[in-house]
Amino acid sequence: MKTLIQAGALGLALVAGAAPQALAQAAAADAMFRATTFNLSANGETRVAPDMASINLGVVGEAPGAAAALAANSAKMNRVMAALKKAGIAARDIQTSGLNLNPQYVYPQNQPARLTGYQASSQVTVTVHDLARLGQAVDATVGAGADQVNGISFGLDDPSTAEDAARLAAVRALSAKADLYARATGLRVARLVSLSEGGGYTPQPPAPMMAMARMEKSDATSVAPGELRVRVDVTGLYELSR
C-alpha cells in the first residue's frame, strides 16, 4: 500500500507540474477567442529594369535518311553555338533544351502515305547577362543558320533587392489598411498577432517570335527590355482594442 501511495503522489506531482503550462495555453486561446481581430491582406509592388534575358533558338535539318537529318541538324547547331560564343556568350549560358527527329510524309489523294524523309530539330536556351549584347547575339545566330527564334524573356539575376522593396511596400499598405478599418469601427490597433507572405518575383513569360519581329529596326535587331514588376502579397492578423 505504501508503494501505491508513493506512486500516486508522484503522479499528482507530475500533473501539478504540467498544469500551469496547459492552463496558460488555454487562457491564451480563450483570450484570443474573446478578442476583436481583423484578418487583412495587402500587396506591395516595385518596378525594376531587367538585367538578364533568355532566348530560345532552334535549327532544323532535313534529309532522306534519319542519320543524315541528324547530322545536318548537328552541323547547323554547331555553327549557331560558335556564333554565340563569338558574340561573347559563355558556354555555361548555352543549354540544349530540346532535340527531336520526325519522319516526313506526303498524303496523296486516295493513296497510302509515303515517307519522303526525316526532319531533325534542336533548340538551345541562351542566357544573356549583358543586355547590350542581346541584339548582337540574335543577329549572329540567325546569320549562322538559326531557323527559329521561339521567344525571349527578361529577368533578374538577383531579385532579392526588388523583393525587399516590395515587402516594405506591402507591410506599409497592410498597416494603413488595419488603421483604416480600426478607425471605421471605432477601435484602435493593439498589436499585430501574425504575418504571412505570398507571391514574390516571377520571371516574365517569353515573348513570342511575332513580338520580336515588331521590334526589328534597320539591319540590326533592336530589343526593348522595359521594366519588370515584382509583387509580394502579405496577410496579417491584428488584435484591436477600445
Score class of each variant (00 low, 15 high):
Pro159Lys: 05
Thr125Asn: 10
Gln119Met: 10
Thr116Glu: 10
Gly135Trp: 09
Gln136Gly: 09
Gly117Phe: 01
Leu195Met: 07
Ala120His: 07
Thr125Leu: 14
Asp164Val: 15
Asp139Thr: 04
Leu115Met: 05
Val149Ser: 06
Gly145Val: 00
Arg167Asp: 12
Arg133Tyr: 01
Thr185Met: 11
Leu115Val: 00
Gly117His: 01
Glu197Ser: 08
Lys177Asp: 12
Leu180Phe: 15
Gly186Ala: 11
Ala144Gln: 02
Leu115Gln: 07
Ala165Gly: 07
Ala162Phe: 13
Asp164Glu: 14
Thr125His: 14
Ala144Met: 07
Thr127Glu: 03
Gly186Ile: 02
Arg133Ile: 04
Val138Leu: 12
Ala169Tyr: 10
Leu180Val: 14
Thr125Pro: 12
Asn110Gln: 06
Leu156Asn: 04
Val189Lys: 00
Gly199Ile: 01
Tyr201Met: 04
Ala162Trp: 11
Gln111Glu: 15
Gly151His: 07
Thr141Trp: 00
Val124Phe: 14
Leu174Trp: 02
Ala132His: 12
Ala120Asn: 03
Tyr181His: 07
Asp164Gln: 15
Ser122Val: 00
Val193Arg: 09
Ala182Thr: 03
Gly199Met: 03
Leu168Asp: 08
Gly155Tyr: 02
Arg191Val: 10
Gln123Trp: 14
Gly145Ser: 08
Asn110Glu: 04
Gly198Phe: 09
Leu180Cys: 14
Arg183Trp: 13
Leu187Val: 15
Thr141Ser: 08
Gln148Pro: 10
Ala173Asn: 15
Asp139Glu: 00
Ala169Cys: 05
Ala178Gln: 02
Arg167His: 11
Arg114Cys: 03
Ala178Asn: 06
Gln148Ile: 09
Gly199Arg: 09
Leu115Thr: 00
